[in-house]
């Protein structure tokens, strides 16, 4: 869903702004420079603590900077070819917030590209991060469905914690990628697809889960004279069925929240609503819940450590290109 998202390159309003505090440098044990954030918090307030959540997806990098509130958030391309643009998105976020990298006390990375992030202090899976992000937005959520670019996930929450989760297998069916391939085949944008699907008289059955097969199937339906709106409605039904199956494995319980890039498609949300029999909750900016969760988790960890009087040690993090492990 690159084109559309790039166009939407989010310019969220800056809600709060806090003057950052510089780190206190400490001598390191093994020669490398280590920062400690303990020092400044002794004097300054909690709200000065700035944490970044970085969600590096297969196509988009999402960043949330926060203290007690969200300072700013940015969505930018991961870099389709070399996937080396994540650091640029970080730079953009910092510019937007009027901060320098040193102002950020802690960076927590998540998402598909979370592993080798030179500017991150720690990495946590997108499952835990989405769960935390959603939980802060919708405290009543029990089931989360995340439709990402490369895979879809279902997460079950209990007492705010991840109880169980399921992910689709190595296949693009029921993912953003699937939607994108089909949108290309139909020469429609994603929002056009949602609009068109509202006009459907019936849902054309799309049975193939294989992206390649489904594309063929759709083209041959079109040549048989089936109208586009029925095909698109059938397609949304097929994707929701595929993802619903994952969630059903964990036993769906209310409230259900749908997030991830796929949740931006109102047509798909409608298809889920039909399948569920009730209205699912959708965050205002579904792309950001992972990054937001990452920021919250990072902040919580820093605060918890400080409470215990533990020293949080940071290695010298560098705002450099992300290398993927695959």
């Amino acid at each position: 869903m690159t084109k559309e998202m790039e166009a939407e390159f989010s310019q969220n309003e800056i809600k709060t702004f806090a003057k950052p505090v510089r780190f206190v440098k400490e001598a390191s044990l093994d020669g490398a420079e280590i920062h400690s954030i303990t020092g400044y918090l002794k004097e300054k307030k909690e709200m000065d603590l700035i944490v970044a959540g970085v969600d590096i997806g297969s196509t988009m990098t999402k960043i949330v900077l926060m203290n007690t509130n969200i300072i700013t958030s940015v969505i930018g391309p991961t870099g389709a070819e070399h996937r080396q643009l994540a650091n640029k998105v970080m730079e953009q976020a910092l510019v937007q917030a009027g901060l320098s990298f040193e102002d950020v006390a802690y960076v927590l990375a998540t998402g598909y590209g979370r592993i080798n992030v030179p500017f991150a202090d720690r990495q946590v899976t997108e499952i835990t991060c989405h769960a935390r992000g959603i939980q802060s937005l919708f405290p009543t959520a029990r089931t989360i469905i995340e439709i990402g670019g490369q895979d879809s996930k279902a997460i079950k929450l209990e007492g705010g914690k991840v109880l169980n989760f399921a992910m689709n297998d190595q296949c693009a069916a029921g993912t953003g990628r699937f939607l994108e391939v089909i949108a290309d085949a139909l020469e429609l944008s994603l929002s056009e697809m949602s609009q068109i699907s509202r006009k459907a008289k019936k849902k054309e059955e799309i049975s193939n889960i294989c992206t390649v097969f489904a594309e063929q199937e759709i083209i041959s339906r079109l040549s048989e004279g089936v109208v586009v709106e029925d095909i698109v409605a059938g397609l949304f039904a097929a994707i929701s069925r595929q993802v619903f199956k994952l969630a059903e494995r964990l036993k769906i319980e209310k409230d259900v929240v749908i997030t991830g890039g796929g949740a931006k498609s109102t047509g798909l949300i409608k298809a889920f609503e039909d399948k569920l029999g009730f209205t699912p909750l959708v965050p205002e900016e579904p792309l950001l819940t992972g990054a937001m969760g990452a920021a919250i988790l990072g902040r919580e960890q820093v605060l918890k450590s400080l409470e215990k009087g533990k020293l949080i040690r940071r290695r010298e993090q560098r705002l450099e290109k992300v290398t993927f492990y695959e």
Binding site: Y112, R122, V124, E126, T128, D151, V162, F165
Partner: peptide
């Protein structure tokens, strides 16, 4: 693979492991 890594890591996170 990346997906396997995410699954295992997320499972360990639910168990309250290192991460």
């Amino acid at each position: 693979t990346g997906q396997l890594r995410t699954r295992i890591q997320a499972f360990l996170e639910t168990l309250g492991g290192r991460d």
